[in-house]
Amino acid sequence: MNADLTKKITEEEVKEAVFSIGGTKAPGPDGFTEAFYHHYWEDIKQSIMAEVHDFFEKDIFDKSMNHTNLCLIPKPASPLHMSDYRPIALCNVSYKIISKILVARLKKHLSSIISEEQAAFIPGRVITDNVIIAHEVIHALKVKKRCSNLYMAIKTDITKAYDRLEWDFLQAAMFKYGFDVRWIEWIMTCVRTPTFSVNINGAPYGFIQPERGIRQGDPLSPYLFILCAKVLSHMMKKAETQGLIKGIKISNKVLK
């Protein structure tokens, strides 16, 4: 796995990354849209390749490239608190290209790392499966005698899931999964370097240096998040093998 993750970047990969970004998304602070990159691909190919090469081979990364505009999207109709907003990050396309390359590589190996209860964001798994399973479990809690006596289901909601994630935790988790040091280094550069300005009434304000959290809007974030969430489900599994909690049995098969 590690050999595949850290192998040399090919032009093919870069091109795929560039064209996998939707053309009509909002641009980052530098103002270049994806459509620009698509249209002038032949002309700017060389410089993009050089940039990508710098990042992956020489570990050179211009921090200003990772400057990000935050767009605050209100969650309820009339927001009162800061927490009522969802901060969406508008990254530069030049950064997104690197991030997309990383994602494309990571994706292939996710299904071997992440346990099968996690269905979102993993190719080949479908979220509706989980809906059906949850539905089945809850139904069993109602009608099956053996289940309805002793079991319960917990639904947890995690506040500001992306924004609160600790970087050290992410790093430690990836280390535990056995990722190559080089790979972790790449990811952590992407995660640690951003700086933010907040878009208010159409103009960016302020300059924020984050100390934790991953961005909503960075193609990498969902994958990093499920890597972290895996830790929780792993802890649950461990507790189950230790006999601390007991999985519900809706038939003769075991479940969490």
Binding site: K142, N149, I154, I158, T159, F169, R212, V231, M235
Partner: peptide, 27 residues
């Protein structure tokens, strides 16, 4: 225990007001 440990390590927080428990019918 698990939840608090995870919260501490990852910096995440369970939003108790939005979480829910569902018990078996005969609990």
């Amino acid at each position: 225990d698990i939840l608090t440990q995870y919260e501490r390590a990852s910096g995440q927080k369970v939003n108790t007001s939005k979480s829910a428990l569902h018990f078996g019918k005969r609990v």
